[in-house]
Write a protein that binds this DNA or RNA. Sequence first.
DNA 1: AACAGACTTAATGTATACACTGGGGCCAAA
DNA 2: TTTGGCCCCAGTGTATACATTAAGTCTGTT
Lengths: 213, 213
Amino acid sequence: MRASERAYAALREDIIEWRLAPGTVLAEVEQSERLGVSRTPVREALGRLSAEGLTRAAGGRGVVVTDISLEDIDELFELRETLEGKAAALAAVRGERPVFEQLHAELLRAPEMLSDSDPSRHDYYALVGRLDEAIDAAISNSYLAQAMRALRVHLVRVRRLAADDAGRLQAAAAEHAAIAEAIAAGNPRLAEAATTVHLHRSLSHVKATHTPH
Amino acid sequence: MRASERAYAALREDIIEWRLAPGTVLAEVEQSERLGVSRTPVREALGRLSAEGLTRAAGGRGVVVTDISLEDIDELFELRETLEGKAAALAAVRGERPVFEQLHAELLRAPEMLSDSDPSRHDYYALVGRLDEAIDAAISNSYLAQAMRALRVHLVRVRRLAADDAGRLQAAAAEHAAIAEAIAAGNPRLAEAATTVHLHRSLSHVKATHTPH
DNA sequence: AACAGACTTAATGTATACACTGGGGCCAAA
DNA sequence: TTTGGCCCCAGTGTATACATTAAGTCTGTT
């Protein structure tokens, strides 16, 4: 694997997992020593991260990890509602029915995944991720899909702010199931509405359980 | 100005203005000689361009200028309708009325700008650009604004494909005026509808006058 | 003649040396 | 003591040399 790719993945992971707190200055030499590569790949990685909005060039004095304020979360969800609502509607029109029927059935069984002792909820998040991928594929619009992928980076970061208790995750699974069901039924307005409902509930939960850093 | 910035601006301009045709291979050494800087800034510029989607890394053999197919144009306008529709609606709710009343009045006088002999339509495009900026500012959502800015790069490129005759530009000015009027009136649904109408007309015009390369 | 494999080479990927710039600290004067 | 200006330097910005990889070609075998 290329060194710049490793540096990018490592830094991105560190930021998303909040191991690098907002405001942290990422000096090129320092990071190159920490990651065991030269400045060039680190520089390229920092450029990509700044383009994504995870870091911010701080005029001559390195790049800093961007903060996520409460207003940012509101803005993020406003854009998310726009994009994912449209995506769900398009998937309902263009998607292949059996795929979403299958996902719907699996999402109805999601509570079983949350009862066991896996603390990282790996299976659950993998299933939700498969729904995202199925929608991405169904919309057959690479620009829209790319915009949503760019958003999801920030959303994973926000998710780490909230306490994902089993109760919320079960409710979220039911909401996801409703989205999959609407898409499988080929009903774009219902799919969009279900997405809107889900995102509003998610946002409320994040804001309610959010612990300021 | 930094060399990487100059290289980026120059390459971007060359691509948008179709001086660099789709499929053109941009070798780092070649471009560094042409632009009079070393490979490092050129490399950074190419990275930024690839992140924006104007170029595409072609696995080991340089980066190539991306093509714009008819499907791409459809996808582009689908996303554009989603984003700009939402933006217009938000601007109608959050924007400052006098700003858009002023823009509305100026847009109604746009035909005067198109009657003179300026072939590049500089004043006209500047006015339309001011409307875009006013909407960007009014929505007060940096993520949405950034997504729209990223889109506009591709749209300028598409615009160069179409024949911008005076008739179409006058009609477009009237459509823009309708959008500004709806925002000034504080009517989000009308603003969104006016945007939808404008974008559909634009797309029809592009597809009708598009000359394949 | 067609295909498989290694070689060639031209490009990218990486490391590092040098240039430049902006900020912080120190010193001096009021 | 405070403030203004200068100096120092840490860090980014650029150039270039070296390593690596992948596409294209050539040759040998089937």
